[in-house]
C-alpha cells in the first residue's frame, strides 16, 4: 500500500467516524427539544407561587417533560396527582421543614458541571450558597429548620478511578457555619474511639432538638447507623447494615434501606423500620429494592421514590410492615411535606 492510499483510507474513515459521532451528538441534543414538550397524559403543570409555609401541601422536584421539568412544584399532600404549581426554581435534590428549604443544584460551567447547595427561605429565595464537592445524593433539613445537611458522591480520589467516596455536610442556617464533612467528627464504635481512613458518611436525618442527628457510617465494607451529636462533635454506632436513615416525626423510629443477603448486586436493598429503643427491625411491605432516603409523610406512612418512565415516581407504604407499596405520583422525586 502506498502512503497515498493509506492516507486516503484514513481520511475517508475519519469522515465516516466523524459523521457517526456528530449524528450521535445531534441526536442527543435534540432530546432537549423533546423534553421541553409536554407529554400527553402527564401531570398538568402551571407556573405559580410556591411557598414552604403552606400546611397540607407537598413540594417536590417535578420530572414531567415540559417547560417546568426539574422545577420545584407543589400539590396538595392529600391529592398528589392533582395539577402541579411550578416555582421556577430548579433542583436536583430538595427537602424542606419549618419554612427552610435546601436545594441541591447543578451549575453548568464552561467545561464541567459543578454543584451547589442553596438554603431557601419560605418563598424560595436564596439565603445562602455552598459548594457541593460532587454529585448530590441526599438532602435534609432539621424539623426546626435550623440545620440543613446534604451528601454528595465524590467521584474517585484518582483522576482515572472508579472508586467513590461520599461527603456529608451539615450547615447551621442561622450562623452560616458549615461542617464540610462529618469525617471531622470523632467516631465511637462499640464504645471505643475508632479511626479509619476509609470512613464515609451519608444520609443525614435530624432530630427535633437541633443537636442530635442520625446518619450512615460506612467503613471496612460495612455500614452502621450512627447517632451524631452536633455539640460534642461525635458520632456513635448503634446498629449495623443501615443506610439512608430517616427519623420518624416522634423521634422513636428510623426508616432505612437494608442490604439484604441474596438479592442482586444492583438492587440489594429493602425498606425497614428500626425501633431505636428496642433495636427491633420491621421489614416493610414494599417488595422492590429501594435506593432512596424515605420521607415520613406522617407518623404511620413512608414515601419513597422508585425508577419510573420519567426518572422516578413516588410511592407510599405503611410504616408498620402491613399493606403494600402504592404509587401516589408519577414523574416526581425529593418530596417534602409541609406543616
Amino acid at each position: 500500500m502506498t502512503v497515498r492510499t493509506r492516507v486516503l483510507i484514513l481520511v475517508s474513515a475519519l469522515a465516516v467516524l466523524a459523521a457517526v459521532g456528530l449524528a450521535s451528538v445531534l441526536h442527543a441534543s435534540a432530546r432537549a427539544d423533546r423534553r421541553d414538550h409536554v407529554q400527553a397524559g402527564g401531570p398538568k403543570v402551571t407556573p405559580g407561587p410556591v411557598t414552604l409555609t403552606a400546611p397540607g401541601r407537598m413540594v417536590f422536584r417535578n420530572l414531567a417533560w415540559g417547560p417546568h421539568r426539574d422545577e420545584l412544584t407543589s400539590t396538595p399532600a392529600s391529592t398528589p396527582s392533582a395539577p402541579r404549581t411550578a416555582s421556577g426554581v430548579k433542583c436536583l435534590r430538595f427537602y424542606a421543614a419549618s419554612g427552610t428549604g435546601v436545594c441541591l443544584q447543578a451549575v453548568h460551567g464552561p467545561v464541567s458541571d459543578t454543584y451547589r447547595a442553596l438554603i431557601l427561605d419560605a418563598r424560595l429565595r436564596t439565603r445562602a450558597r455552598y459548594d457541593v464537592p460532587g454529585i448530590p445524593s441526599r438532602a435534609r433539613v432539621s424539623p426546626t429548620g435550623r440545620f440543613a445537611a446534604w451528601t454528595a458522591f465524590v467521584g474517585g480520589d484518582s483522576y482515572a478511578g472508579t472508586n467513590f467516596s461520599t461527603r456529608a455536610a451539615i450547615v447551621d442556617t442561622r450562623t452560616g457555619a458549615l461542617i464540610p464533612s462529618l469525617e471531622a467528627f470523632r467516631i465511637l464504635k462499640d464504645g471505643h474511639a475508632y479511626h479509619s481512613a476509609d470512613a464515609n458518611f451519608w444520609g443525614v436525618t435530624f432530630a427535633a432538638d437541633d443537636r442530635t442527628f442520625y446518619a450512615t457510617l460506612a467503613t471496612k465494607g460495612r455500614t452502621y447507623l450512627v447517632r451524631g451529636d452536633l455539640r460534642a462533635r461525635t458520632v456513635t454506632t448503634l446498629h449495623a447494615n443501615v443506610e439512608c436513615p430517616s427519623l420518624s416525626p416522634d423521634g422513636t423510629r428510623v426508616a432505612y434501606k437494608k442490604r439484604v443477603p441474596g438479592l442482586p448486586k444492583d438492587a440489594p436493598w429493602r425498606l425497614y423500620v428500626l425501633d431505636l429503643r428496642t433495636l427491633r427491625e420491621t421489614p416493610l411491605a414494599e417488595r422492590r429494592s429501594v435506593d432512596d432516603q424515605a420521607v415520613w409523610k406522617d407518623a404511620r406512612t413512608l414515601v419513597y421514590s422508585l425508577p419510573g418512565d420519567y426518572g422516578a415516581d413516588l410511592y407510599e407504604v405503611p410504616a408498620d410492615g402491613t399493606g403494600t407499596g402504592r404509587r401516589i405520583s408519577t414523574a416526581a422525586v425529593s418530596p417534602a411535606y409541609l406543616d
Binding site: 483510507i9 484514513l10 474513515a13 475519519l14 467516524l17 466523524a18 457517526v20 459521532g21 450521535s24 451528538v25 441526536h27 442527543a28 441534543s29 432530546r31 432537549a32 423534553r35 453548568h108 464552561p110 467545561v111 464541567s112 458541571d113
Partner: peptide, 27 residues
C-alpha cells in the same frame, strides 16, 4: 464534558464519540 454540555443526558453520545475516536486510533 463539551459533549455533555451540548446535549441532554448525552452519555450515549459520549460513548459513541469515544468509540469513533478509538476506532480512529486503531486505524
Amino acid at each position: 464534558f463539551l459533549i455533555l454540555r451540548a446535549t441532554v443526558d448525552g452519555y450515549d453520545a459520549v460513548f459513541t464519540v469515544s468509540f469513533c475516536v478509538a476506532v480512529a486510533g486503531v486505524l
